[in-house]
Design a protein around this nucleic acid. Structure first.
Lengths: 201, 201
DNA sequence: ATGTTACCTTAACCCGGTAAGCTTACCGAG
DNA sequence: CTCGGTAAGCTTACCGGGTTAAGGTAACAT
């Protein structure tokens, strides 16, 4: 059954991603093959890879947004606010609005669980963490208001936030109440960033 | 040409690793296949994987030592020395003796270059970094002399040292003089750990 | 001699990912 | 209206890392 009139690149892409996400949630990321995804979406394996570079991107293709958010936080901060504080505020804002990228959105437990149980995805997130770090370091390097070791600061900020986020995810999956967890998340975030502020003052 | 009297598991293992390392240095890690390694070592592909879990372990199989060094630094420190200071001293000592694990040993430029140019190896190092972090966090969690967020501290320490080490490797491969670089390495290491000390005081 | 164990082999397979080349649909220009 | 280009698919075939199953042989003990 080849093409019928329903052509359309971005439609196909979204459809593949939807189907894939469903399968991954059902059976676990590492237990679903690309061929299965392709079959379920009614396309060929090659078409899947035409739309997504790696299997992990079927789920995590919005990750690059995070890089932009991080850069923007530093770039567009007020003059009297340091980069650490700017990022802290951005992260607090994301948490406050229960942004999909924070671990505090509603109904995402299955998603989080699936990621936690898939070594491949964890590895990808680790690599991505590095991308954020590099982007942040670049931003700081080109920032006239900042002098100091941008690479070091970027690495510390990213590491600190990862610790906060990972713990939040852990509690989330342990069944913690969402409201209490949000407050706790903010508190741990503030504590971690306090360390960085003190250290780099 | 099957077995001649030269049996011996660990001998074979070492031989495979040697041959592999030579090929990797010659042609780059990602340009050498396991089958080629096996052929050059006179064994079968399956045998290679019987001795090493992953291709990267052919080069990096001594990495677990680092974990032990890190744990020991924290565990066996004097009572009046905090964990950050203990790790700083250990890292300074490694640098001073030009330990193979520091980037300051002599004649390891080809090695460093090969790693830098192999995305696969970089990814493995990133994963390994995480192992160190987890081990360190566990050590801190079971340390009665330490109270605080062990996971956070572990992540910050590991991140800080990575920044220092990566920069040292970069300068090394840029041809910097080894003596001057060693001094510079110490200085950057001290500065980075100063940030952590101040932050966690 | 016989059995056990450790080591190795071949052969076949799985999965993620890439390459090459053909077909189908759509679109704009003559 | 047709011609041609481009974009999106397809199929087929391949590669490399990694796994599994089944079997052979040296060395060593009984």
């Amino acid at each position: 059954m080849p093409n019928r009139g329903d052509r359309g690149g971005s439609r196909t892409r979204a459809h593949i991603a939807d189907v894939a996400t469903g399968l991954f949630l059902e059976r676990g990321f590492d237990n679903v093959t690309i061929v299965e995804v392709a079959a379920a979406a009614g396309v060929s394996k090659v078409t899947v890879f035409a739309h997504f570079d790696r299997k992990e991107d079927l789920l995590l293709d919005r990750l690059p947004d995070v890089v932009e958010i991080a850069r923007a936080a530093v770039r567009e901060r007020a003059d009297e606010v340091g980069p650490v504080e700017a990022i802290r505020r951005t992260l607090l804002a994301l948490a406050a609005e229960r942004h999909g990228l924070s671990a505090l959105a509603e109904g995402i437990e299955p998603f989080l669980r699936m990621i936690r149980d898939a070594p491949t995805l964890i590895a990808r997130l680790r690599a991505f963490e590095n991308e954020v770090e590099v982007a942040l370091a670049a931003e700081l390097a080109s920032d006239r208001r900042f002098s100091g070791d941008g690479a070091l600061l970027a690495a510390l900020v990213v590491a600190a936030y990862r610790i906060v986020a990972v713990e939040t995810v852990r509690r989330r999956l342990a069944g913690d109440d969402l409201g209490g967890l949000a407050a706790d998340h903010r508190e741990r975030l503030n504590r971690a960033f306090e360390v960085l502020e003190r250290g780099t003052a």
